[in-house]
């Protein structure tokens, strides 16, 4: 299947054109951007990013680990001070808090890797539509289409302010 790549200089037209293409039934789209732009975030995948689930689960796991570890260890080797309880919850809150952050942060990193499909998936230049221009200051909108649609897609990309349209080897 041929793949067409429209090159843009601003994010607005990329988002507009991608939506337009989706409405016309083209689903195999990819957007490349040199920086984060909120207007591009929800074009291809309108659902909220699943990274938040990772952070939440990591954080909860951290807080449970922090309290469970400290309390269990206090009872496993009790330090007897007067009639006081073996576990002192207020001070263990510090450990619980630190582990919430630690586990939450590490889970966020793993979430970024899994949700962003890193480092698996298309690695570096193996992706035929990718170009070093997209780590410069240009945007790309890649569309996979059947041979008979090449003309239509090219016209659509051009109409949406693409400064160039390139056909990548099929």
């Amino acid at each position: 299947m041929p793949e067409l790549v429209g090159i843009y200089t601003t994010p607005g037209p990329v988002a507009d054109c991608a939506r337009h293409l989706q409405a016309r039934g083209f689903t195999e789209l990819e957007i490349y951007a040199p920086a984060a732009f909120p207007e591009l975030d929800d074009v291809l995948d309108p659902k909220p990013s699943r990274v938040r689930l990772w952070t939440l689960i990591g954080g909860l796991l951290g807080v449970v680990t922090g309290y469970a570890m400290t309390i269990w260890m206090s009872y496993d080797w009790p330090v007897v001070i007067g009639g006081k309880p073996f576990a002192s919850i207020p001070t263990y809150t510090i450990i619980g808090f630190e582990l919430t952050i630690l586990f939450g942060g590490l889970a966020t990193l793993f979430g970024l890797l899994v949700v962003g499909r890193l480092p698996y998936g298309r690695f570096g230049h193996e992706d035929r539509a990718y170009s070093a221009r997209f780590s410069g200051d240009e945007f790309g909108l890649a569309v996979v289409c059947s041979e008979r649609d090449v003309e239509e897609v090219t016209a659509l990309l051009r109409a949406s302010d693409a400064k160039e349209v390139n056909l990548v080897a099929p």
């Binding site: 951007a33 040199p34 920086a35 732009f37 938040r52 499909r117 890193l118 480092p119 570096g124 992706d127």
Partner: peptide, 17 residues
């Protein structure tokens, strides 16, 4: 760089992270 390409999906999860 772990194969970072700056796709919309990557940027979205990056901003979120």
């Amino acid at each position: 760089a772990l194969g970072w390409q700056g796709t919309a999906r990557q940027w979205k999860s990056h901003s979120r992270s």
